[in-house]
Design a protein around this nucleic acid. Structure first.
Lengths: 329, 329
DNA sequence: ACAAGCAGTGGGAACGCTCCCACTACGTAC
DNA sequence: GTACGTAGTGGGAGCGTTCCCACTGCTTGT
């Protein structure tokens, strides 16, 4: 009648409760016994009760993914979704479940902080590009934490997984230099983004003497960010012949502006994106861009967390980026 | 030293364990006692252990959101993200947490089904536009379920929350008729979408004698779906002077095609989108579209589930759509 | 004055696991 | 033959709640 318990399985297999538990958790059991227990599990259709397990073991087998972005921005950008997919796919085959915490305002942030509790979760994957996130400060240092995007905070139990933004910045910059551009504008991401800052560092170093700090502008990640920042830069320096964007969405906004101004891409101005989102291959002209393995960042985050919880001593991960040359630069 | 338990609070307040539990769960407690217990809770910094609570009560205080789309598609479209945000915001202030299940392939689907277990979850919010989803079939009928998008399956413990697609279809169709279009093409969504079908029904009825079944084409939700389907329709009937799309992303693809063909929007062809995504206001020309309250669908789904679990007898919800007139039609 | 009700309370039992200690049965060394 | 491992096993105790029943001390009615 009721859902079978471990005791039912034990009775069915003619063994003790402890032995069934050992079979479930990989303890030492004689091969003959293990086979009998596994058969009994199958016959009963037994499925362990997660709450009883968590109560007894202290583990909850839940990871949280935390998103902190203003309302409407979160999924406007496919980036976060792809990271979630990466996390999710890395969790396939495990017993871990993924708790989603979205904090777009104060109330939601409060809820997120309340839920980010070692008693509820085994670990946290924090997806935000913002350097100063109040949630980070509120996080219990006991709770193993992976940061994807935010700066590497000195703390125990904390690791980072992100793309090699410095190298990515270099790749784009070198490319436009090789193609002959000399007056290179840089659209950085928002000021509070660690990635954006690091990319600019890579771009600066690659551009060398051609780097002009007056051609660097901060802009939001979206298309209008690109349009506005590019318009301002062009007003200041009409001779710009290449622009390195912080995102593909920015690049789209830039290309729309250039088109409206009658400037040809790439003939007059080379445009390089960042991310290699799906639409980058489909827009006109197809976008030359620096690919970052977004889903893989998510997957690695989950794996690093896994290893940390298994008692290993994992290392933070920096994933390589790759230049995808298409028509825009 | 250790995390305070309900017993610690009881001792601190000088009451029994049962009384503290009653305070926590809104049972009958004398006002004086309640105040004393609440003070003790605050002093101890007590926070109930969710696993013990779930084990004892049988409730898990977890809702699952299920996404089933092929890889890369899920968050390409901001729709799902907005629904998640809606759900999340409706959960603010409750003790419910949201478990995310993404199923883009067979393995992940298997994991999702394993996790969709009444012992783990109190209820399911299923976000898919597909009529036949294997996960739906595998769902335990015991588990209260809300469908957002999929067809209304006859089952106990199941409700739907979605936009009024029929009315939305009518709104767009009437509008282009009023503006003078007479040769109206319809880009439906994918064939296995219930919403898409319903919208076409609304469009058909509103177009009346001007409805031409040879000008209806199925297309995927994305931009290239719009481009391809529209190209085929134009080859068949060059006189098309309006097109009703199933999504804003389709509309974008259509407008890009029309522009490439040298047809003006809206002068030669009126284009109506569906959704009113953020970019609809920003594209060129700004898109006339049928707004559906996507985030609110998610929020209502969570609320309906809540009510169902509270023992109420909620009703399925159909939310009104709204025509947003901009420049494209 | 006494029975009956009733609001408020305490604490035993149960929820279904894991952890760990004690125990058995067998092999091995002396 | 006895002592000593050692691999394998059973089950008690405990995890921190909720649920519910029994109990107390008042109020109310007769």
């Amino acid at each position: 009648m009721h859902r079978p318990t471990i005791e039912d399985v034990a009775k069915a297999a003619g063994v003790g409760r402890g032995t069934v538990s050992r079979v479930l958790n990989g303890g030492p059991v004689a091969e003959r016994t293990r086979a009998r227990v596994e058969a009994a599990i199958a016959v009963c259709g037994y499925e362990a009760n997660v709450h009883a397990r968590s109560l007894a073991s202290g583990r909850s087998d839940v990871y949280a993914a935390v998103l902190t972005e203003p309302y409407g921005e979160v999924f406007e950008d496919p980036t976060f979704g792809l990271m979630l997919q990466g996390i999710s796919s890395a969790l396939t085959g495990t017993e871990i479940s993924l708790s989603l915490l979205i904090a777009t305002n104060g109330d939601e942030r409060e809820r997120a902080i309340r839920h980010l509790d070692p008693a509820r979760l085994d670990g946290v994957i924090h997806l935000t590009p913002h350097i100063e996130d109040p949630i980070l400060a509120a996080l219990d240092p006991t709770l193993p934490t992976i940061l994807c995007g935010a700066i590497d905070i000195p703390r125990v139990n904390l690791w980072t997984v992100h793309a090699d933004d410095y190298q990515g910045g270099q790749l784009g910059a070198r490319h436009v230099l090789e193609r002959g551009s000399r007056t290179v504008a840089i659209l950085a991401g928002p000021k509070d983004s660690y990635s954006a800052e690091t990319r600019v560092a890579g771009q600066r170093d690659a551009l060398g003497s051609h780097f002009r700090s007056d051609l660097v502008a901060s802009a939001s990640w979206g298309g209008e960010g690109g349009t506005n920042a590019m318009a301002a830069l062009l007003a200041h320096e009409p001779a710009i012949d290449a622009v390195l964007c912080a995102s593909d969405r920015q690049a789209l906004g830039v290309m729309a502006l250039l088109q409206a101004l009658g400037r040809r891409v790439p003939d007059d101005v080379r445009v390089v994106g960042f991310d290699d989102q799906r639409f980058a291959a489909r827009c006109l002209p197809p976008l030359t861009t620096v690919r970052q393995p977004i889903a893989q960042i998510g997957a690695n985050a989950a794996e690093v967390l896994h290893r940390a919880l298994a008692g290993g001593n994992p290392e933070s991960v920096t994933l390589p980026t790759e230049l995808i040359v298409r028509a825009s630069a």
